[in-house]
């Protein structure tokens, strides 16, 4: 089963830092403009729960997950 792919939209990002705080293995903030940087679009299973949480708490809807199909953990 293919894992969900993570997508970030820097145009929507407001640089609150929720992602870099919640899943620092997967997201960071650009040291210049503070906006989201995606470190890993296909995070390993260990980080998936944090990534889902991050997509849920992102204040500006800049992080989306694309589930390739049902049954992914």
């Amino acid at each position: 089963m293919t894992p969900p792919r993570v997508h970030v939209d820097r145009d929507r990002c407001i640089g609150a830092g929720m992602c870099a705080m919640t899943a620092p293995e997967v997201f960071d903030q650009d040291p210049g403009d503070g906006l989201v940087l995606l470190l890993d679009a296909d995070p390993p299973p260990a980080h998936r729960a944090a990534v889902r949480m991050t997509a849920g708490v992102c204040p500006s809807g800049a992080i989306t997950l694309h589930d390739p199909g049902p049954g992914t953990p």
Partner: peptide, 13 residues
């Protein structure tokens, strides 16, 4: 106004 400030309030900084 917010944009130029964001990079100065990042988690790392």
């Amino acid at each position: 106004y917010r944009k130029p400030l964001v990079g100065r309030f990042t988690v790392r900084r």
